[in-house]
Design a binder for these strands. Structure first.
Lengths: 146, 146
DNA sequence: TTATAACTCTATTAGTTCAATAGGGATTAA
DNA sequence: TTAATCCCTATTGAACTAATAGAGTTATAA
């Protein structure tokens, strides 16, 4: 399971991607997404440090998207906050670590099984950009109205 | 990521499935799979309680597979030890819990994205039975020799 | 220039989970 | 009756999670 921090980050980003040019106050995002304000504060700061968000201090300031919604995908967000996407470390790429149980990865079918799952998951997470998520949301909401 | 407990369980089961009729000592599995003996003890007990393994006490005793290798899949093992397979609780089936951030699941694309990932993951985990894993292992080992 | 709005940063807390171990108890075979 | 083996409860220390506290910094605008 994702940490709450990661889930909060995703929801905050999607919220901001609905108005990609807008500048947002921590307080407003916090209320719109039901995220504890102080906790969100730390999250947005992390996202700023990693270059996804920009910010302006002082009165009239706020956070804004620095990257284009099409260029931010969930795989990166998950990795930033929760590390490896794979279910076992020996099947991870960016956070790879060998495991003691399967001595020979080449013939370890447990490794193999989880590698397949990792690959499929990463592929799907990469396809989920802020842009695609917001677009789909618009569609779903329109369909529901009808 | 899976807990070590879960990963240990999977490796122990695969080990036993290589000789589905055999009776195994905790000590032997522990050494074969590099799993701390006392920890493994608790794991095997859990697997016995859930009906996957059987055991015989006393001298000459040991653990053995109660279910057929083809009938034990990784989805069940993961659920037994780590709970939900989904990355967010609102996308889980057996461990479903609503989340505060997406108020309307029907139109929440975050929910939608993680539901797709969950479905694909479950499908793959279900296809990974002890039997299929051992069969594949045999193939991989034969191919490597050549 | 000063009040205020807003982000920045470090530290701390309580609670939980994880991984592993300890130390017997119960059961069976020889 | 003894040794082998599984059974069971409890405990530990470390790490992580979620959330909060509180003071610091920066920018705006009256």
């Amino acid at each position: 399971m994702l940490s709450k921090k990661c889930k909060y980050a995703i929801h905050a980003l999607v919220h901001m991607a609905r108005d990609p040019e807008e500048k947002f106050l921590i307080k407003d995002i916090s209320e719109a997404c039901n995220i504890p304000k102080k906790f969100l504060e730390a999250i947005l700061l992390d996202l700023k440090r990693s270059g996804v968000l920009g910010s302006k201090q002082g009165k009239g300031g706020g956070y804004f998207l620095r990257m284009k919604p099409a260029d931010v995908n969930l795989a990166e967000v998950v990795r930033q906050f929760d590390g490896a996407i794979a279910l076992v470390s020996c099947a991870a790429h960016k956070f790879y670590e060998p495991c003691a149980e399967c001595e020979d990865e080449e013939t370890c079918t447990v490794h193999d099984a989880f590698l397949q799952i990792r690959n499929a998951t990463v592929e799907m997470l990469k396809a989920d950009t802020l842009e695609s998520l917001v677009k789909k949301e618009t569609k779903l909401k329109a369909r529901k109205k009808r």
